[in-house]
Structure formats: structure tokens, C-alpha cells
Design a protein around this nucleic acid. Structure first.
Lengths: 191, 191, 191, 191
DNA sequence: TATGAATGAGAATTCATTCAT
DNA sequence: AATGAATGAATTCTCATTCAT
């Protein structure tokens, strides 16, 4: 119930950054579509960059929570990996704007020149890697998975998830190969 | 071996668009780094957009050739899929600027609003899909591969390649899991 | 009595457009002579064209009022025509910039390609024609004027007024033949 | 049979200057529509201004000839004035581009700042005035015309002709009041 | 919290003109 | 006589940002 205008600004900016890109979105456009005046942007945020940054922080925080909330107890070990894949595909459907924002700016804006995001991105990636490495080791220990190099395979699965995520997001129509993707991964890992 | 000024412009623009993004690159910067004057850009090209477009056309044409040049005779059917994966990872190393240009602009600039690239992108994707579907069917016919849904699996492999390509490109250090990736895919497909 | 910056812009633009022409006047020059910065032009007006348009609208509105304010009761019918002639000669003296602006742009910029002014110009002309036709008919009915074709004569008088107006405006020195012009017209019309 | 390209340039420039105005016409456009390259413009003419000047000189020379060719022997004195009026209306029909060029640039470009045309214009005007004054005096001497101030009346008739000329030129449809105009003038002058 | 007015810096693009050939 | 390549100097317009209120 608080600060509705500030939220309007953030929501509008999220949408515009996601759909048009950061550089292609003007502060005027944000103000106009958020139904506020431009100076108000500068009342609530230091500058355009900070609007972007705040949005990212929120997205990353939520994403991190989702990863941490994944069930730690599952019937099979592969279920955990399956959960991770499905989580990402769900995010692409449920949070298309947030997903686009990240993907569209990922190499160009986020990774370069010591952007604060590069740190967050690395951290997040480490989280995923740890999750996957633990799974893989557990799966091998329980003889559920083939023998494999846990670290490298975790990285490969990460690439796979990233590729699936990206495609689901930019696929205009539906994405009918979720099951195929799971099977593809399972076949690769299971003994 | 001196390049013409037109080529200097295209090379500089390629680099800047790849490293900074289209919107973040100014015509002034292109001119300056290409050691020409700004109006010369407009002598050789209609506008900034056309510089971008010409670069893309060239990249896409070369990429298409590479796909078409993949060997049609291989020892195993999986070799063909392996070749496709390795080709993309090679492109990421050998043509980092061209690769970045495409990836960095792919969702935001290329796919949207009837950009000429969306047609080329679709065409190129179809090329890859046809290649993969043919491989998968052949592999199943020869009892080399498991029984699987050729179309959906082709799409899934595409996502996989895309994910690998992207990571290799943005991985600052080396990319030591190429072999792991090949194994991951082979394990999934082979009987 | 200090004028706002917006007014300064309009006044300066009026002067420059009138003296140099629209195309020959730069936004930089307007800003400089109006003692404002260039972006302020774009804060108050959409673009250069709109500055021109707003000026024209004002001029036309005032001109229309002047026509409508002409006395409807006069001693002789010819007085009305005389009033119309004198009004235009007065406008040329009292509003030289506005007059020049219209005349200098009249064929080239105003009439062509659906410019909003072509509508206004036609409307204004119809106003004058109606005024003249009514006079002529009244003059004939009252046996003050010769028998003549009212519509065509009205058009001819319009040409005459236009020619006088233009000359008065561009005559460097004074314009000593106002009386001669009135006599010329009276001689032509009166029985 | 000589220098056809030079003529193409002049003809194209005449058309473009007449239809769009001097400032609105680019040398590129002239070159393109004349089917030559831009540097050729500078081979044949010192600069853009000179192209304009050469065109004007030709127009003025031809115009002067037309005035001088008017018959010096006529049945009535008014016939001479009628001839002058009809000549101008004919020029408007037969030489619309040349007429437009003059009218469209007359105040803004031609009269100002010591443009060479201001001299020619003045000279031409003197020619017309002399012609008219001579007629008027002759008409009065022969008791064909009323008693009037020859100089001022000549100027007034000049305005009248100018007004007719201008209207005929910019009247989209036909110009049906030529006869009315002649009658208007005759009524004014004749005893 | 909110805004109308204003601006410095710079963006893309144009244009008359020139130079080497 | 003719041109392809090139440019200095502008031109219109934009944009993130600030200031006074």
C-alpha cells in the first residue's frame, strides 16, 4: 500500500528495459508510461542506472530464493536436476519480463566493466553449480548416475538449462519439448 | 593488404557493436576508430542501421556456408552431431566478434518488429534443424541411436548447442568442458 | 511586462522567418536571438515546423478578426470596399513582419502538399470573396455600381488588393499612391 | 546541339527551384534528377548560387524581350495596356516554372542584401513603368483616358498586373476572369 | 512528494563543396 | 568533360539530468 508511484516507475521501467533494452528506453518514456513526471524519477532514484540496478537486485534476490527453496528431499537424485530444469522453464513462463531483462542485457551490459551485476551473476552461477555438483556426486555415490566428471558435467548442464531457458522465452508459440529435454538429460546421466 | 576505408568502417563497427552494443555505439566513435570522418559513413551507407545490417548479412552468409560445408560422410552418425557442436565452439573462438554481435543483439534487436534478421534467423535455424533431424533419423535407422522423437530432440540439441556456444563466448578463461559436452550428448543419444 | 521565454521564441522566430525565410532560419539562430538555449525550443514546441505553424495560426486568427470587425454600416457601398483596401494597406504598415511571413511563404511553403495553411488560406479567401460579392451586389442593387459580374469582379478586386498589399510591403520608401488606388477602383465600379 | 548536360542541369534546377524553393533544393537532388554527378555541377558553375543566377538572367532577358516586342502601334491606346495585361497572363500559362521561380523567391531571396537581382528587378520595373506612363499620357492626350496622375496610376496598374499574374499562377483550375480584369481596368481609365 | 522550466552534452544526419584522377 | 571518394561545418533534434518552487 506504500509508495505506489515508485512501484509504478519500477514496473514500467522493468517492462520497457525488458522489451526495448536499457539504452533504447528513455527516462521520458518511463515517466510518461508510469504516469509520473521525470524529476520524480530523480527523486526516487539517483539516476537511470540506479533504476536498472534496483530492478536487477530484486530479480536476483527472488531468483536466489527460488533456487534455495528447491526441495532437498526427493525420491531420486535426478529429480533434483529435473526440478532445476523445470524451475527455469517455469520462470520463463511466469516471469517473462524479468527473464527477458536479464537475458537481453546479459552479455552486453551486465558482464562488462565491473558492473555490479557481474559479481551477482557469478555468485548465482556458483549457487547453481554447487547445487548441481552436489547432485551429481550424490547420484554417483548412489549408483544412480554413470561415472562422470562432476564439475565439468555441472557446467555442461548449466549450459543446457540456459539454452532451454532462452529458447522458451523467445519461442513465440508454446514450448512442447520440455519432456524431451528432461529425457535427454536423464538419458545422459543415468546408468 | 591495406583495407579500404569502407572495410575499415565495417570492421570497426563490427567490433564496437559486438563489444558495446548497437545503441551504445555512436557514429562518431565508429568514424574516429576507423580513422575516417563521420560523413564518410553516410557516403558508403544510408545510415547507422544499414552499417549494422550489412555486417549481419555478411556474418549470416559465412555462417550458412560453414553449415553447408560440414562433411556429409562420417564414420558414425553421431560424428555429424559432434561436428556441429564442435563447429559452433570453434566459431566462438575463431570469430568472437561476429559471435558476440549476434548473441548480444539476438533477442532485443534482431527478433523484434519484423527486423530483416528475423527472417534470416528463422531460415538458419531451419537449416540446423533439418541437419539434426536427418542425423537423428539416420542414427535411429542404423540402430546407432535410441528410439526418440526426432523433431523435439533436434530442438533440444539446438538449445544445448546454443547454451554451449554462449558460454564459451563469454567465458573469460578457457572452456575445458568441450569433451564433457560431447560425451553428455553422446550418452543421451546412443543405444 | 517581461515576456516569457516562450513568447520570446515566437517573436524571434516570427522576425527571422519573415526576414530570411523558414528554410534559411536555423533553430540555433532562433535560440540565440531569443536568448534561450536550443533545447528549450523543443521543450515548448515539437519541432521547428510547429514553431512556424503556431505563428501562422495566430496571424490568421488575428487577420480573420480584422476582417470580421470591418464596419457593416457605411455611407456608400463603395466605402466598404475602400475599407477593405485600406485595411490591407494598414496591415502592411502596422504588421510588417506578419505580412512578410505570409507573403514570403505563400506559394512555396503554404500552398503545397496539404500544408495545414492551405485550408486556412482558402477559408480566409472565401471570407474576403463573400464580403466583396455582397458589396458588389448591394452596390448594383442600389444603383451605386455599374452592372457587372459580381463573382468575377470580386476575384479581380482580390487580385488588386493582393498586388497593392505586396507592393506596399516591399516598397522600401513610402507608398504615396494609396489614394490613386482607391480612385482607380472607384472609377471602375461606380456608375 | 551543344553541352546537353549543362542544359539538363539548368532545366532541372529551374524546375526544382520553382517547385521547392532554392534553399529546399539540394545540389545532390539537382545532380540526380539531371542525371549527372555532383562535381559536374561545379565544373559548369561556380556554386549553387551561380546556377540560380544563370537561370534568373535567362528568364529576365527573355522577359525583357517580350516587353520590348509588344506592338507599338495599336488601334486604341488602351489596347497597349490590355496587351501588357494579357502578356503577363500568358507568361503565367506558358512559362509556369519560370514564373514560379521569380514569384516564390521575389521578396525573400531576390530583393534582400544587394542580390544582383534587385538591380535587374528595378530595371525591369522601370521598363514597365515607362511603358505604362507613356500609354497613360498618350491616352490622356488623345482624350481616350480620364485625367489622372500618370505616375501613380502606372504604379497602381503595375500592382494590379502583379496581383493577376500571381493568382493566375497559383490558381489550380483555370482563370476565367481575364476578361473581367480587362474590363475592370478599362472602366477605370476610359472617359 | 511533486513538478514546470530549463540545459549541457552530444546524437544522427545533411549539404555544399573539393580533390585526385 | 566527368567522377568516386571524401570532408568541414552545420543542422535538427534528443536525452539524462537539474533547479527553483
Amino acid at each position: 500500500m506504500t509508495s505506489t508511484k515508485k512501484e509504478q516507475i519500477l514496473n514500467t521501467a522493468l517492462r520497457l528495459f525488458a522489451l526495448q533494452g536499457y539504452a533504447e528506453t528513455t527516462t521520458f518514456q518511463i515517466a510518461q508510461e508510469a504516469q509520473v513526471t521525470e524529476p520524480l524519477l530523480y527523486y526516487h532514484f539517483k539516476n537511470k542506472e540506479e533504476i536498472f540496478t534496483k530492478i536487477l537486485e530484486k530479480i536476483f534476490a527472488e531468483y536466489k530464493q527460488m533456487i534455495l527453496n528447491l526441495p532437498s528431499e526427493t525420491v531420486t537424485v535426478f529429480d533434483k536436476i529435473e526440478n532445476l530444469i523445470r524451475l527455469h522453464l517455469n520462470i520463463a513462463s511466469m516471469r517473462p519480463l524479468e527473464s527477458r531483462l536479464i537475458l537481453a542485457h546479459c552479455p552486453a551490459k551486465l558482464i562488462e566493466n565491473g558492473h555490479f551485476c557481474s559479481k551477482i551473476l557469478q555468485e548465482q552461477e556458483q549457487l547453481l553449480l554447487d547445487y548441481l555438483i552436489t547432485c551429481l556426486k550424490e547420484g554417483m555415490a548412489k549408483k544412480e548416475f554413470k561415472k562422470l566428471d562432476a564439475v565439468n558435467t555441472a557446467l555442461v548442464i548449466l549450459c543446457f538449462i540456459n539454452g532451454l531457458f532462452r529458447r522458451k522465452l523467445f519461442e513465440q508459440q508454446h514450448f512442447p519439448y520440455e519432456e524431451t529435454a528432461i529425457v535427454f538429460c536423464r538419458n545422459s546421466l543415468l546408468l
